[in-house]
Each structure stands twice: as C-alpha cells, then as structure tokens.
Design a protein around this nucleic acid. Structure first.
Length: 193
DNA sequence: CAACGGATCAGCT
DNA sequence: GCTGATCCGTTGG
C-alpha cells in the first residue's frame, strides 16, 4: 500500500479522504478500512473544538495537515480526526465511517461481534473497531507508523454532501461528505441520498 | 473548585 | 423515536 499526499484545504481534504484507506497495524494484526464518510471542521467554525483557540485538549488540531486529533465524547467514545491546513490554524476532518477491508475478525472481536455493516459505521464505532486509543493523538498519519493513511485501491464513487450530524452549533453548514450508495455510511437515510 | 455539556451509541418503546 | 451511561477539559464564580 502506498502512502498518501494530502491536500491542505480542509474541505478538499474531507472530499479527498473518501475512498482513502485507513490502516492500523495493531499488536493483534493489521486492521484496515476504506473511508466512506467525513465531516469538515473549519478554522473559525463555531462547531469546531478549535473555535476558541488552542487548549490542552485540542492542541493537535493546530499541528498542520496530516496528524491525528483524538478526543473523548460523551465520556464513553473516542473520535478520530485528520488535521488540516497549516501549523497554527485549528482545523480537522472527522472520520465518521469505514468500509472494512482487512482484519474483519479483529474488528468484530473489539466490537463484540457486531454485524459487518455496523462494525465501523459511526465515529465512535470506527475508533473502537480499529482499536484506536487516545495516545495516538498527535501522531503523523502520513508517515507509515502504527496508524496511517494509504492511497485508495479503488476510485471513490459519487460523493454526496449534507449537513453535519449531531451538532447544536452551525448545524446548517453543509460540511459532511459521503460516498453515495455505500451501505457503510452512518446517519439517517434521508441525509445520505 | 464545582458545574456543565458534548462531532455518540445501545437498548428499549 | 427517546433515554441513560459516563468522562474530563473548559468555563465561570
């Protein structure tokens, strides 16, 4: 698998990542999936954790393009982002769903035998299936490490666009991207037509 | 220093 | 469709 060269712009990155492969070389073995759904969180975006400037939690959002930003949500789940833009600018792309490609049995073990379609469908399920923990926060995803991005094996299908999911702020911004017709995309059906 | 609340999910109605 | 679980960084007094 080839490593990737990422676009700098957050929206361009959110589109680019659809079809890109996310690989986790864990102790149990390699787990990989094709990214099928993303959301862009821009600089000066009220819905973004970077909105009020750098803090301890969001520090990795300001590293520039291609790093992992991992945070805990609702006390229970982790979410994984790919950072974007230049160092000092807080922006990132949330990875919301994967189409499982490799290491399905490992993912199923981590996800308590969830059905294939549900393995990595949703941001919290994605991190659980991959075995991503908070300590990968700040890791360089373009470098071939334990968690890294590989070039698409197949070209992405038609990319659809909608409002982002689960927000209270800036809920009207159309910054969610997904592969049309892909069954591994999360969220309500009507958002993904 | 206490309270708040969220880029979620599973389980139940 | 609705609700509870459950954490910790951030915020305000």
């Amino acid at each position: 698998m080839r490593r990737v060269e990422l676009p700098n712009d957050t929206i361009a990155l959110a589109r680019f990542l659809i079809g890109t492969v996310l690989v986790h070389d864990a102790p149990e073995g390699r787990v990989a999936g094709r990214i099928v759904e993303t959301e862009a969180y821009l600089s000066h975006d009220p819905a973004s954790h970077s909105f009020r400037g750098p803090t301890k939690r969001n520090a990795s959002m300001f590293l520039g393009r291609g790093f992992a930003y991992v945070y805990r949500i609702y006390g229970t789940k982790l979410c994984l982002n790919v950072t974007s833009e230049s160092p000092g600018i807080g922006a990132a792309v949330l990875l919301r769903a994967l189409e499982p490609l490799e290491g399905v049995e490992i993912m199923q073990a981590r996800r308590e035998g969830a059905a294939l379609r549900e393995l990595a469908r949703g941001p919290g399920r994605l991190t659980e299936a991959l075995g991503v923990s908070a300590d990968v926060d700040g890791a360089d995803l373009c470098k071939r490490g334990t968690l890294w991005l590989a070039a698409s094996l197949t070209s992405a299908g038609v990319i659809g666009r909608s409002t982002r999911i689960g927000l209270t702020k800036a809920a009207e911004d159309v910054l969610r991207f997904y592969e049309r017709g892909n069954p591994y995309v999360s969220g309500p059906r009507w958002l993904s037509v």
